[in-house]
Simulated assay, not measured.
Amino acid sequence: MAEPGQVPGEGDGEASRPYRPGYELVAEQLLNYIAEQNLRSGDRLPTEQGLAQILGASRNVTREAVKVLAAIGRLSVRRGAGIFVADSAGGLVDDQLSHFRPTSMEDVLMLLDYRTVIESETARRAASLATPIEVRTIRESAETSLVAAGKDDGYAFAKADAAFHDAVGAASHNVFLRSSVAGVRRLASQSDVLLFHGDAPGSLEVAARQHLAIAEAVAAGETDRASELMVEHIATTQSQFERKIRDRLFSLDDRGASGPPPRPSRNTDAGDPPLSPETTAS
């Protein structure tokens, strides 16, 4: 098992060991342990000390990892009872996604692929079915995201970004599509916390202008155009995400095995975990 601060498979030289916070690596290892043991919602985990021994980490770093995973809704820590895999809110569907690995490039790419399928169809239907009030809501949230991007205000952009995608989902007039969009974005926010610590992987202005283009296509009733623009929007997000992950994992200097915990939440989406900022430029 790699030492905290070292990516498995990398060389042994000082210059070849990119920095990753110890709690981040242990959180990743803990999620892998849950998947390997096929643990499900409500299952109890070993104590902090037991987990530290299993993962080959110190108890302090393990405690920080548990805190982070509890903050993003993957673990539940009950005083006097122990550490548990967090209960899922959506039954079978959530249970099937309970082993999503937010630091795995493979899992993130699958998530973005699924998001492309869901949101492209959501945009198509919104362009066909949106009422004048829904069109206005989509436009206003897109415009608000552009204003926030111009001010480099990540908090305001996060709110407008979430409002935009939810408004498009609402305009599809399909509660299952709208719910799927929200669920995918909640999973993506876990990667934001563990890998980016609240920083946006890409340009907020680019994302905001794509919001505006989608809003105009919806307003004009251009179904194919709205769908194509949403596909392009998510492809841009994927490109930014991949670049940021590569930078995060392989381009930073080796600065040791510890680091600050994620910044407090800036996400106001109802139902999101307390430390799950939706600041991805998406």
Rank of each mutant, 00 (worst) to 15 (best):
N267Y: 00
P132T: 05
T131E: 12
A200S: 14
A57D: 11
V168K: 07
P264K: 07
Q29K: 15
E24V: 15
P4H: 15
G91R: 08
Q240E: 15
P102Q: 13
S172W: 02
P132H: 03
R59H: 06
R63Y: 00
A81D: 05
S58L: 04
S180D: 13
R209K: 12
A270K: 07
S227I: 11
L194R: 04
P4N: 12
V147Y: 01
E64Q: 13
Q53G: 08
A213N: 13
A70H: 05
R248V: 02
K67M: 03
V85P: 03
A158W: 04
S265H: 01
I34M: 10
P21D: 13
A149I: 08
Q29T: 02
F196G: 05
V206S: 09
E121D: 12
A123D: 06
Q96W: 05
I234M: 07
L275I: 11
S276V: 02
A220I: 01
A163F: 02
P4Q: 14
I133Y: 09
V193N: 04
S58R: 09
S251Q: 13
A57I: 06
P262E: 10
F84K: 08
Q238R: 15
E278K: 05
R185L: 11
V184D: 05
L51P: 05
S88C: 02
R40Y: 04
H197P: 00
E3N: 13
G90E: 14
A226W: 05
R79Q: 06
L249K: 14
P273N: 03
N32T: 09
D95C: 01
A220F: 00
A126V: 03
E222G: 00
A130T: 07
F250L: 11
E106R: 12
G9I: 13
V26S: 07
I133H: 10
Q210G: 10
M105H: 04
E222Q: 14
Q53F: 02
H233Q: 14
V147D: 08
A52H: 10
V181L: 13
S120N: 03
P4F: 14
G82T: 05
R248E: 13
F164S: 10
R59Q: 15
T137E: 14
L51I: 08
R78T: 01
F164G: 06
D153F: 06
V175G: 05
V184T: 14
V26C: 04
Q96I: 07
S239A: 15
T268F: 05
P260G: 09
L252G: 02
D95V: 05
F241K: 09
